[in-house]
Amino acid sequence: MPFDVVCIAVIGKMNNPLYIKNCSSTYQDLKCHYIAHTSIDLVEERISTTKHTDQYLGLLYAMEELAVFGYITNTRVKFIIVTSLQDVAIKDQEMKNLFRKIHNSYVSLVSNPFYNPDSHKPIVSANFERAMAEVTAT
């Protein structure tokens, strides 16, 4: 992969934070929370203004040396990926594949009868954690 994932965030349907992972050593955790919060507004704007119904929302915004990408499921769960800006262009297809992986592991998580999707609590799951590590490692 020609780019580094800095942060992955999963935001629930009530805009509650479900999972925020900071994969970098250069940024503080707070920065990731801040970015995740900011992107909620942009996701909302994106889905209310565009007619196109793809779950992948593309580049939400770029800030300093970071680029933020968004994805929203049919069940209004948002996934955010933050990457560091580099000289090479990031291909949409690569991004989509990453989101797809996150989506797949989220679906597996929800299918677990011990997970209560109405609880709005942050995700605590070894399997999900492992899948996220895989996403960032590739």
Binding site: T75, S111, P113
Partner: peptide
């Protein structure tokens, strides 16, 4: 209700968003 919640998550995975 619980099952419906989980199932819909799975079967709408590859579907365009609803209008």
């Amino acid at each position: 209700y619980q099952l419906g919640m989980a199932m819909v998550e799975r079967i709408t995975k590859d579907r365009p968003r609803f209008l």
